[in-house]
Amino acid sequence: MTHSVAGAGMSRRTFICAAAASTTALPLPAGARAAAARQTAGSSPHGAGLRSVDLRINHQDYALSLDPRTTLLDAIRDHAGLTGTKKGCGHGQCGACTVHVDGQRILACMTFALMNHGREVTTIEGLSEPGGALHPMQQAFIDHDAFQCGYCTPGQIMSAVACVREGHAHSAAQIREYMSGNLCRCAAYPNIVAAVQQAAAPEA
């Protein structure tokens, strides 16, 4: 593997993330952030040049006023108030921020919010109705105790749903490979594999 846009060497982990997610999101190079800052400075009450961004998250419209440098992750958490999606690094290295955009898993920290205008974003909160029946993957995570602290769990579940949908859940080995973009420091990995296998079973 050669170099990513940001010039940083791509690790096996980011490679796996990218391969698994077929994502088009690119790392945000420091230069791009600064350039964005220069372009927009001085045009709003506190000068950060807010832009209105319409996001559609979990079938609901959000009209947000954002610093254009805001990542989709920060927009979801800090502005839409949906804190189920987690930040574990902000650099595409942990998978905690995994959401679906137009049905594909992506790392929400690796894409600007405004790049997702008009797309359908699904977060962990959108997988099932509050208080209602759980998504089979959520239930499988409970059945197999596929978490401990639970911090990586929303990202794991969003990845797992996509992993099955992509047709990458045919064997334990394949699941391990395609779930390797999501770190779990509590190391619930064997239980995560079992949960994905259970949820994938009817379609397998």
Binding site: T83, G84, T85, K87, L134, I142, D145, I157
Partner: peptide, 19 residues
């Protein structure tokens, strides 16, 4: 037994400090 907070953790409703 299942964890008492299992549902909160799989639905994203468990609140961590920065949430």
């Amino acid at each position: 037994l299942e964890r008492v907070d299992a549902r909160l953790k799989v639905t994203g409703e468990a609140r961590y400090a920065a949430d």
